[in-house]
Nucleic acid binder design. Structure first.
Lengths: 152, 152
DNA sequence: TCTTGACCTAAACTAAGGTTTAGGTAGTAC
DNA sequence: GTACTACCTAAACCTTAGTTTAGGTCAAGA
């Protein structure tokens, strides 16, 4: 099955200009052209774009994605490199999730804080509130989001 | 207690140039200068920078951070705006975490895939493997990370 | 044949988020 | 008094990740 750039664009909800940009940056190796020079995509290129989607989601820079894609194109001799790369990415994503979880704690604290402030019609009261007067789960988020700074 | 830009830079591990940039962009309202024009930071500015750190972590653009900081500077009349903003950000971060969790599933699948490929010294065998032949938890991650595309 | 639509390229442009540079001031140290 | 350090500014510059533009090709339909 062959696909044209427009179909790929619809399939992935990526603008055509972006797909061409990815190709130009070398993110889609072995992409062939028809007699007229039009890009022709096959299943393997769709798989490539799926991987690009995944790698982009974790903010991997274009040039790293390119390197990875070239390893894929080089075949079995680069399996270990690719494996190592995914294990490194796993750590990075796990760390990101943990950081976001911490951020969420901070946000939850702020949500609570402003909900109280709104009820009071002023920040003054909640600003003065001591941790022991906060609801249990908020107190935890508060310590959670402030601990880093306090340990310095 | 007063702080100079260098101390703030060390405290937050942010380059001086970046702090000046934030100030220029209006992210640190009410920052005063000494007789010589040097920026003088107080506890409230440190709190501001802590909030900036938090908002940056969730990729809030500079101009939104600026808006928020100005609401803070405006006092109690903007409490509801700020509260609403944090509730919106809460949703955004929760969504990001879910997306990253999905990405992690994809990565876990790839880690398994390349671990098998490395053992086999070739991708061929694992590439042909059917879901029912994969380990239980990998099969789930596989379906998890491929379901979106298959439902289209 | 003419036109229309989908495609192509190179290169300029954009936006975000800083960083670097060039030139200058203020306060302390010798 | 001059050297040194920390600070200042405006403006140019940089990188990333695209987007837009201007000009062109190709195949199909009226």
């Amino acid at each position: 099955m062959e696909y044209r750039i427009q179909e790929i664009s619809n399939m992935f909800h990526i603008p055509i200009s972006t797909i061409r940009y990815y190709d130009k940056q070398g993110l889609i190796p072995n992409l062939e052209r028809d007699h007229a020079g039009n890009r022709i995509f096959h299943e393997n290129h769709i798989e490539t774009l799926r991987v690009i989607e995944c790698l982009k989601r974790i903010d991997m820079p274009i040039k790293d994605i390119k390197e990875f894609m070239h390893w894929v194109a080089m075949g079995d001799e680069t399996i270990t490199k690719r494996k190592d790369m995914f294990f490194r990415q796993k750590k990075i994503v796990e760390k990101k999730i943990m950081e976001l979880q911490e951020t969420l704690n901070m946000i939850d604290f702020k949500c609570w804080y402003y909900t109280v402030a709104e009820e009071d019609q002023t920040e003054e009261k909640v600003k003065q509130m001591l941790p022991q007067d906060m609801p249990q789960e908020i107190r935890q988020k508060y310590f959670n989001s402030h601990k880093k700074k306090e340990s310095k």
